[in-house]
Simulated assay, not measured.
Amino acid sequence: MRTPTNRSTKRRLARWAAPLAAGLLVLTGCGAGGGSNGGDPAANYPSEPIEIMAPADPGGGYDMTARSIARSLTEGGVIESDASVYNVPGASGTTGLTQFVGENAGNPHQLMVVGKILVGAIQQTDSQVTLDNTTPIARLAAEYDAIAVPADSKYKTLEDLMKDFKKNPGGVAWGGGSVGGVDQILVAKLAEAAGVEPGKINYIPYSGGGELTPAILSGDVDAAASGLAEFSDQVAAGEMRLLAVSSEKPIDGVDAPTIKEAGYDVSVANWRGIVAPPEISNAQRDAIVSKIEKMHGTKEWKETLESNNWEDYLMTGEEFAKYIKAEDKDITATLKDLGIIE
């Protein structure tokens, strides 16, 4: 295993070496594939191992996504070189983002997993480095939230819950993940759709499912919003009931309506994707996009989506860049409504 010092040294060298090598390959058609590939940058990329940053601890969604991408690229036969993953936790992903942009400018062999949570974290931490400083490559997958209550709750449907919520917003305690995260954003959007000011929500944040689940079962909160997977075991055991899911369309195998079907025009996807560093060329960006699109078609990636109950959410290149800007605008407005940022 390489030490951080070796990795840092390699990246400093890669800042000029990798772009130069890639540029020569594009211009001359030399290297892997030689003249048979001509000047096709997608055919000549990558010319060295790829490293993917997960800006969080091992085991979470970013980490799982990064390792699934690496496995699908290599085992799916998309690339001949190696693809490895490293973790940089801290500040809800903004620590990793700052390091990624600062150390890897111009290097197309460095990639980073990003997502909706990071967009909100950038706003909350007032990070000086944003996703505008990266090169968007692809949005890949999404998970959806669910709204759940204890099995013995008086709330049998989402509308039952919303009647009390609209009548006395502060009287309904909502549980969910971290402040300003996807779960709180979902509850805020549901409040807005119901004509309730988001600032009146009684929202109690928990650090993860290990804390949220007992809070729901004990009645410390009346309802909770979290990733659908967080509730699956308790629902299967008959300890919780799902009232709705945040997807656009019904989810196969899930016995709950969408929030839209329940009468509220709300859909929230906890998406994840991948970006490259700044200062790579358009040809290099297109080459990475091409490899990710091929990865998307592999059986390894399809198995990843199915086994994790992730939705296929592919969007690439400029379209993804525009999507990130729209997400930033939307999340910023919601966080302001909640009083989390000014």
Rank of each mutant, 00 (worst) to 15 (best):
R11E: 09
R12C: 05
A14V: 02
A18D: 10
P19R: 02
T28Y: 11
G34R: 13
G35N: 04
S36A: 15
P41E: 00
P41G: 10
A42P: 01
A43N: 06
I50P: 07
E51G: 08
M53C: 12
D57L: 13
D63I: 14
T74S: 11
P89R: 10
A91D: 15
G96H: 09
G102T: 01
A105G: 10
G115S: 01
K116C: 00
Q124D: 06
S127Q: 00
V129W: 00
D132C: 02
T135A: 03
P136N: 13
A138L: 12
E143K: 14
P150H: 01
P150F: 07
A151G: 00
Y155H: 08
K156I: 08
K156M: 06
T157Y: 11
K163G: 13
F165R: 05
G171E: 05
W174F: 15
V179S: 00
G180M: 09
L186P: 02
G199D: 10
Y203R: 04
I204R: 00
S218E: 15
D220E: 14
A224D: 01
A229Q: 07
E239R: 14
L242F: 01
S246Y: 08
I251W: 05
V254S: 12
V254P: 10
T258I: 04
G263K: 14
A269Y: 12
G273Y: 13
V275E: 02
S281M: 09
N282Q: 15
D286F: 14
S290Y: 11
K291C: 10
E293K: 04
K294C: 05
K294P: 00
T298S: 10
E300G: 02
K302P: 01
N308C: 11
L314M: 15
T316L: 06
T316G: 12
Y323D: 12
K325W: 05
I331C: 02
T334A: 14
L335F: 06
K336S: 04
L338P: 15
